[in-house]
């Protein structure tokens, strides 16, 4: 792993650790309100200070990871399972199945992802799980296409012929040799892109408001919106979530890139 990937992995590990910590901790976003200690700077009690309602910024930062972790993982699942399956089946078997699946993928891809997600939230309700599912659905064609291209070009290769000659069935060839051996980094890479995209979606919606995570549940997006424009406020109240968003997305991308390189080596 190169330096970028190591950095990315480290950041993601921290985010994951923060999420785990937030999930088991007894920090209560509601009870933490205390206007008497509003907008304090960093101190031993509050590592990143407090926001203008007196809530601890650092803890809210950790708690906010719950807002996108679940939906992000859901998106990856919703995207990978049908997406990979569709791409693999279309690539391997070809023919009318391929045409039908590729048509379906094209149709979904004709709607810009954000439009699809926005429509889904509007119609089905404004919660982050719908967001995750819609993001997954919107991304599935990209994943399917990538898998399709890989499998389609590999299926005529010698090692496949050799496997058949050995008497291995089609399904085993498909699922193990083609998908697992050759596609897992590909899928992993796309999963990371999708995860960072879901984070992007969630924070954007929560920042602009109207949709997304609502107070008092913290999200890096709504923390930013809440503290923005606070004069004489604690600057960390806004900068901490901004940095968190940027670093996490960057980490996902760096790590994903390294998966490409690993394959090339």
């Amino acid at each position: 792993m190169n330096a970028g990937a190591r950095f990315g992995a480290a950041v993601l590990a921290m985010v994951l650790a923060g999420w785990a910590l937030a999930s088991i901790s007894s920090y209560d976003v509601i009870a933490d309100v205390d206007p008497s200690r509003a907008s304090l700077g960093p101190s031993l009690d509050h590592w990143l200070g407090t926001d203008h309602l007196g809530r601890d910024v650092a803890w809210r930062l950790l708690k906010a990871s719950q807002a996108f972790m679940g939906p992000g993982l859901l998106a990856c699942t919703v995207s990978s399972l049908p997406g990979v399956a569709a791409g693999a089946l279309a690539g391997f078997f070809g023919g009318p199945i391929a045409y039908a699946l590729r048509y379906l993928a094209t149709v979904i891809a004709t709607l810009p992802r954000f439009v699809l997600v926005l429509l889904a939230i509007t119609i089905y309700g404004d919660n982050m799980w719908i967001l995750g599912a819609a993001a997954g659905l919107a991304y599935a064609p990209t994943l399917a296409e990538a898998v399709y291209n890989r499998i389609d070009s590999l299926k005529r290769d010698e090692f496949v012929l050799a496997a058949r000659a050995h008497g291995l069935g089609s399904w085993r060839i498909l699922w193990y040799h083609l998908l697992w051996i050759n596609c897992r980094y590909l899928v992993g890479r796309h999963a990371l892109y999708l995860f960072s995209y879901t984070l992007l979606l969630e924070t954007t919606l929560s920042y602009i408001g109207g949709f997304g995570v609502k107070e008092p549940t913290p999200s890096w997006g709504n923390m930013l919106a809440f503290e923005f424009g606070q004069r004489d406020g604690n600057p960390w109240g806004a900068w901490a979530p901004a940095l968190a968003i940027w670093l996490t997305i960057l980490a996902c991308n760096l790590l994903a890139n390294s998966l490409v390189e690993k394959r090339r080596a």
Binding site: I30, D32, L53, G209, K214, E215
Partner: peptide
């Protein structure tokens, strides 16, 4: 959610009631 300052009031109220022993869920509607 468009009622100005309603966020601050509701969050504060939630905190008050919680410290008195009542659980409060909060919803901001468009």
């Amino acid at each position: 959610q468009a009622l100005e300052s309603s966020q601050e009031v509701v969050i504060n109220l939630q905190s008050q009631l919680q410290s008195a022993g009542i659980q409060v869920d909060v919803g901001f509607l468009d």
